[in-house]
């Protein structure tokens, strides 16, 4: 049934205007401001020692978080799809919890558990491990907020794959590990890659939880997102915009990657 011409055009215009003010205009302005004075200032701003350090911190935290969530994600997916155990529904629900909890709350909760004056944090401190205001805490916070991404990407594919191929591999003499490496892993490869890229994107862009647990120590625990915020507050707009553009570029690249990797159905 063809819709009246007017309403069709009306809807299109509405959607475009909505996206223009919400998405295109802000991002476009940032890019325009970044490159307004040419490429030179952009690179200068991004190669300052503080910016380079923030890059390094972001990468370190994101990589550890991705590694942790990939291992946990594969394990939890296999547990949820292939095994039956009491508490399975609870585990399933818990995995989605980070989607619902505000990152700031996550940060505060981590401080309560791992802060210097809590029993756990105190014990770790006595062993020389500082969690809060340090990299471990930031990794923990990032792991928490990006926890569901790998699991939710892998579970449906694992379900569809079924376990007959694994059983066939067992009858042909493969151990559990061999069946996993040779059969299961190739079967979930693209879904896993998709989940990992999503997880990476989320980890690189995390702000709230990391802001709380890092203590925002410049040149120590400052990630790229925190750098943008701090530079902006200190009226160093060129640096803030340059870093923001860099983050946006990374986001666009990961978005393109996910488009390439998205499991075909």
């Amino acid at each position: 049934m063809a819709k009246p011409r007017l309403s069709r055009w009306g809807l299109r215009t509405l959607a475009l205007v909505y996206l223009l003010f919400l998405l295109v205009l802000p991002v476009g302005l940032i890019i325009w401001r970044t490159f307004g004075a040419g490429l030179g200032p952009f690179f200068d701003a991004l190669t300052s020692p503080s910016a380079v350090h923030a890059f390094q911190v972001t990468l370190t935290v994101a990589l550890w978080a991705v590694v942790a969530n990939t291992i946990f994600g594969i394990g939890a997916s296999i547990l949820l799809v292939r095994h039956r155990f009491p508490g399975k529904r609870l585990l399933n629900a818990l995995i989605d919890l980070p989607m619902a909890v505000s990152p700031v709350v996550v940060g505060l909760a981590l401080i309560l558990v791992y802060g210097r004056y809590s029993p756990v944090g105190g014990l770790l401190e006595s062993w020389g491990v500082q969690v809060i205001f340090s990299t471990p805490g930031m990794v923990l916070a990032t792991v928490f907020v990006s926890l569901p991404l790998v699991v939710r990407a892998v579970v449906p594919v694992l379900e569809e794959l079924g376990d007959e191929q694994e059983q066939a591999a067992h009858t042909l003499g493969a151990s559990r590990l061999q069946a996993f490496r040779r059969i299961t892993l190739p079967g979930i490869r693209s879904a896993l890659a998709y989940g990992v890229v999503l997880c990476l994107a989320r980890s690189l862009g995390e702000y709230g939880a990391v802001a709380v647990v890092s203590g925002r120590l410049v040149d120590q625990t400052q990630t790229l997102t925190l750098f943008v915020e701090e530079r902006f507050q200190n009226f160093d707009q060129p640096a803030a915009f340059a870093a923001a553009t860099a983050l946006a570029l990374i986001a666009v690249i990961t978005l393109l990657l996910t488009k390439l990797l998205r499991p075909k159905d």
Partner: peptide, 20 residues
Amino acid sequence: LSPQRRNVGFVFQHYAAFKH
């Protein structure tokens, strides 16, 4: 014994072909 050690050949109704 686990299926791995029984040395049996098993053929499934839906083939269980290794797709990759």
